[in-house]
Design a protein around this nucleic acid. Sequence first.
DNA 1: GTTATATGGTGCGATATCGCACTAAATAAC
DNA 2: GTTATTTAGTGCGATATCGCACCATATAAC
Lengths: 157, 157
Amino acid sequence: MHNPSKKSSEPHSLSLSFELFNEIGIVAQLARSKLTDQLPEGLMSSHFGVLNHLIRIGDGPTPMKLASAFQVPKTTMTHTLKGLVANQLVDIKPCSEDGRSKRVWITDAGHQLRQQTIANMGPELAGLLNNIPDQQLQTMIKNLTTIRQQLDANRGS
Amino acid sequence: MHNPSKKSSEPHSLSLSFELFNEIGIVAQLARSKLTDQLPEGLMSSHFGVLNHLIRIGDGPTPMKLASAFQVPKTTMTHTLKGLVANQLVDIKPCSEDGRSKRVWITDAGHQLRQQTIANMGPELAGLLNNIPDQQLQTMIKNLTTIRQQLDANRGS
DNA sequence: GTTATATGGTGCGATATCGCACTAAATAAC
DNA sequence: GTTATTTAGTGCGATATCGCACCATATAAC
């Protein structure tokens, strides 16, 4: 499968590149489906994504920051946050420094839901990765992060 | 970053597993956004996904096969195919062997659109992967395929 | 055969996502 | 200061996605 004649500085074949993104898309779809099943009625993967982001990156971002992080339109984030507020999983307060902006804070219930979901799904997800050596897992995460950052960088182009 | 004390047969840490799927989800979202921008008005990544699948896997699957492949509800695939038919990118004909089923065939226009889209996006996607050695790319695809197959296997659970 | 069950596909209503237009506030130009 | 431009957020209409109910056909049970 590996082509030893190819130098690492050469571009990858288009088909191979496409195949990678294709696999990424399918796995993401399958994982999203499983995640949605785990969440309480009325909550989607998008809601969980925001909660997870608030814990991972830190509390108090503006809705615009969140929309940018997930690369979704502002209106989509407005709608997602509306659902989170309705379920009392986040609080939204006006930004004292910028009258246009608001800031998003996760509630205790939000924190708890995120913890519970990870506890519920974690073992199953980890099970899927059992056949993958730890080093390869680390490498995958590193490479995916690199790809994400590059995609993030030229999002306007 | 690598933990040499961990045996490969031990389960990965929950946080690491979650981080992997998180990165997969974000990259997929970003790539989907780019793909949608490339497609003509009225077509989404879901439409392209079907066209790509028909070329990759082969012509003539039933809608149910397609829904299963992408792990989306039947109704979603019905809707997606309706859009493809409306744009004359696929043909749907009744299945001669099973009166309940139909079969999906890609048209010349569909084939052409898929080719054109790959030509448009391919270089950009490949560029994102330039920093990744070819062998790591191969390994990523292999592991993602493994994960997908396992997710596919126990989709009912 | 007849009946029960399983499967492929669709219609319909509810929610999610998105593009466009708009308001309010901040920033820049002058 | 006044005006023009940019930016954050929302309302609204259109499409996408999904769960549920339903029909048609195929398969299994008998």
